[in-house]
Design a protein around this nucleic acid. Structure first.
Lengths: 108, 108
DNA sequence: GGAAATAATCAATTTTATTTGATTTAAAAA
DNA sequence: TTTTTAAATCAAATAAAATTGATTATTTCC
């Protein structure tokens, strides 16, 4: 099974691979909550986010890395602090207008 | 850790739970490919989809169930056959206009 | 009725993702 | 310079998801 690669895959395989990674990153309650917090409160360091998420530091770091690797959030380091925020352009590219309430700061 | 539930979660927890399930369903290359086939070819029985996906029957059945449970696709049974198709309304609710090329039949 | 075809389900295994607690690195403050 | 704080990383344990092959249920066709 799965020996032959249909012609279709050669061109679209990369695209599906890319979206698999992005959707996987946002397919988690905790990570959606993190994204929602950035939407509402804007850029924030890990130390301020941790108490809001009620999560251990290493666990939070793990989830932030997954979102960062998928380009869903951005990171800016200043001294000892790491400031994270939503990558709004990426969110807009990915999600519908109807999901605006959760992940777009302007409307709703 | 994780003892106290922030106030926010009480109202939004259900929403995040719902989207976790939906994004999890589409966070897979194979399932994205299935969705894309429905987009391009419309309603189809499992027996016609299997060779296009080059996948064993039980494996395909497993992936179709995941998409169906998340309401991403629809199912219609006729005799021995099961016909599946995209749930376009759900796709539109979930994904951006820019993902139209992959999962909306009209444009592109 | 009996054989063949369609598709769902099951149990066992394998693979992948998440959690935990400890350690490490680096910067800031005393 | 030592201590403290912030955050990333690591290895081990646990949990969840995917794969496999076999079995089952149902329907169609002879």
């Amino acid at each position: 099974m799965e020996r032959n690669i249909p012609l279709q895959d050669i061109s679209k395989g990369k695209i599906f691979e890319k979206y698999e990674a992005k959707f996987k990153a946002i397919a988690d309650q905790k990570r959606l909550q993190i994204m929602n917090i950035f939407t509402e409160k804007g850029e924030m360091c890990v130390c301020d986010l941790a108490p809001l998420m009620d999560m251990s530091q290493s666990k939070l770091s793990y989830h932030l890395k997954i979102l960062l690797d998928a380009n869903i959030i951005t990171k800016r380091t200043e001294g000892t602090w790491s400031y994270y925020n939503l990558n709004q352009a990426e969110i807009n590219h990915l999600l519908s207008e109807e999901l605006c309430c959760l992940f777009r700061p302007t409307s709703c």
